[in-house]
Design a protein around this nucleic acid. Structure first.
Ligand code: FES
Ligand code: FES
Lengths: 156, 156
DNA sequence: TTTAAATCGGACAAATATGTCCTAATAACT
DNA sequence: AGTTATTAGGACATATTTGTCCGATTTAAA
C-alpha cells in the first residue's frame, strides 16, 4: 500500500507569474537585439508557458512600460535596444509581484519591522538585501548574453 | 472612480505553513527551556495563527521528530532541552516544504541544472546557497534568545 | 469508571494563484 | 471595404494553498 503525503507548498523565490515574466522579457530582449518583434504565440512557445496566462503577464509588463506592444497584424512585443541594458530584474518583479520583497517579514508578521523584529529578522534581512541587490543590479541585457552564446536556456 | 488591480502573488521566501511552523517551534522551544509543555491552543494564541491549521503543521513537526507531542489531558508539545540547540531551521523547512529549496530553479524550469542553466542560474544559486547556509546554521536555540530577552516577537 | 482536556487525522470549505476562453479593438495586407 | 493576424481585457475554470470542523483516541484527574 502506498500512502501519499501531500506536500503543503514549495519554498520558492518567485511566483509562477514572475518566472514567466522574466523568461518572456528575456526572450523578447534577445530577439529585439536582432530587431525582431515577437508575437505572444512565439514567446509562449519559446519559453514553454501557457499562452493566455503569458498574455496577462505581458499586459502588465506593457502597462509598466517594460516591454512595448504593437497591436494588429504583424504586431507583437519588443523592447527598444537602448533600454535593454537599463531594465533591471527588480522592475519586472515589481511590476508583477509588487513591493512584497521590500516589506514582507520572513515569518509572516504584518510587515518587516526592525523596531519589533521577528526572531529571524537579522538573518532574513541580510539575505533579502542580497536578493534585492541582485535584482537591482542584473539587467535584461546580461540575461540575454548567455542565451545568445547558447549556454543558458529558457526552456528544457 | 477607483480601479483595483489585483496583484498576482507575493515574492516570499517561505509558505504560510512554514512561517507558522518556525514560529510555533520557536515558541515551544522557548517554553521548553523553562520546562513548560504547551498546548496547541496556547501556541496558536502566542504566535497568532489559526488553531486547526497550526495543528496540522505541528503534526508534521511531530512526525519528523522535531517536536514531541503528548496526548491527553495536560498533554501538549515540547522539545527536549538538549535538542534545542541542535535543531536547525533547515529541518523545519524541510519537514514542511520538502526539498524544493534544494532542487528548484529560480525561473521555474523543471529542476535547477547547472549543465543546462537558466539565465539567472549563477546569481540565483549564490543567493540560494546563502539561504541554505543560513537555514543550516541557525538553531532553534538562537531564535529563542532574542525572544527571552524581549527584543524579538512572534506576533504583533 | 467517568469526565475533561488534550492530540490525531480525515473530510470539508474558503481563499488565492494559475490557467482558459471569448469578444473587442487594432493594424496590415489584399 | 473585407479579411486576417494580432494584442487587450473581462469573465470564467481549475489547481493549490490555506483554513475549518468534527469524531476518534489518549491520558490524567476526580
Ligand atoms: S520582522 Fe520578520 S523579517 Fe523583519
Ligand atoms: S537552472 Fe534556473 S536556477 Fe539553476
Amino acid at each position: 500500500m502506498t500512502i501519499f503525503v501531500t506536500n503543503l507548498q514549495a519554498t520558492k523565490m518567485f511566483s509562477k507569474a514572475c518566472e514567466y515574466g522574466i523568461r518572456a522579457a528575456t526572450y523578447i530582449a534577445s530577439q529585439s537585439r536582432a530587431s525582431r518583434r515577437v508575437s505572444l504565440k512565439e514567446i509562449a512557445n519559446e519559453i514553454d508557458s501557457p499562452v493566455a496566462f503569458t498574455a496577462k503577464i505581458l499586459q502588465r509588463l506593457s502597462r509598466h512600460q517594460i516591454v512595448s506592444s504593437v497591436k494588429g497584424a504583424f504586431g507583437g512585443f519588443e523592447i527598444e535596444h537602448e533600454r535593454i541594458p537599463l531594465i533591471k530584474l527588480s522592475q519586472i518583479v515589481y511590476a508583477i509581484d509588487g513591493d512584497s520583497v521590500y516589506v514582507g517579514c520572513g515569518l509572516g508578521l504584518k510587515k518587516c519591522n526592525a523596531l519589533k523584529p521577528c526572531p529571524v529578522h537579522d538573518k532574513f534581512v541580510e539575505i533579502r538585501n542580497e536578493l534585492k541587490h541582485m535584482l537591482d543590479s542584473t539587467s535584461l541585457f546580461e540575461l540575454t548574453e548567455g542565451l545568445e552564446a547558447g549556454i543558458t536556456y529558457l526552456k528544457r
